[in-house]
């Protein structure tokens, strides 16, 4: 990185990294909008939903799982707001725990669905499920990786870390998009 002489640098009215993250998340929202519209259009064009021989999406257990993810959003919020290091540490670890729990339950559900005969290629119904929910899971994995990085770099949350606020923005996005996916893919 290049350092310039102080007289030509100046303080920023808006935090650059936050702004950049928000712009990037705008693109992410459009990406999921594309996936969700594809889902709705393909679904509207399929006469039987779910197709014969395919299991229903697991509504109930995923409903509970949704709660876990929402809780992880709340704990992340508490972690960012926490004034003291040891509190931040507690909330960050809780966030990590709930995020991992969500991912684990999703994984168990996927294994069951595959056992019931729903795979990527068994039908459009299955393929769409794995693509949409898989894209979300992939985002959560990335969010978890960033979170682990922040946890380790900040002495388990005891020190402040500049990436934490960006990580939380990304986390809120991953949490925030989920109820939408749950409603449109599972419930509708």
């Amino acid at each position: 990185m290049v350092m310039y002489s102080p007289e030509i640098s100046r303080s920023d009215p808006v935090d650059k990294a936050t702004l950049a993250t928000l712009i990037f998340l705008g693109t992410e929202i459009m990406f999921f909008a594309g996936l969700i519209s594809s889902f709705l259009i393909l679904r509207a064009g399929t006469p039987n939903w779910p197709p014969p021989g395919q299991p229903r999406y697991p509504i109930l257990i995923t409903g509970f799982n949704t709660l876990f993810l929402l809780v992880s959003g709340a704990t992340m919020f508490r972690a960012v707001k926490a004034a003291q290091g040891h509190r931040r540490k507690r909330w960050l670890l809780a966030t990590f725990g709930f995020g991992t729990l969500f991912l684990g339950i999703q994984g168990v559900e996927w294994v069951k669905l595959v056992e019931y005969g729903m795979t990527f290629t068994s039908s459009i119904y299955g393929g769409l499920f794995y693509t949409l929910i898989g894209c979300h899971a992939l985002h959560l994995v990335i969010a978890l990786v960033i979170l682990i990085f922040v946890i380790f770099r900040s002495g388990f949350g005891t020190k402040t870390h500049p990436l934490l606020s960006l990580c939380s923005l990304y986390w809120y996005f991953v949490v925030g998009i989920w109820p939408l996916l749950y409603t449109l893919v599972y419930l509708l």
């Binding site: 996936l35 064009g45 990527f120 039908s123 769409l128």
Partner: peptide, 28 residues
């Protein structure tokens, strides 16, 4: 964003064998 989503679906059609865009498999 939506085009990246479409590219993901297309790549899955080509590499995994889904049929999101193939009428024979119920795609559009």
């Amino acid at each position: 964003g939506p085009t990246i989503a479409a590219a993901v679906l297309l790549l899955l059609d080509r590499l995994v064998g889904t049929g999101f865009f193939v009428p024979a498999q119920g795609g559009d």
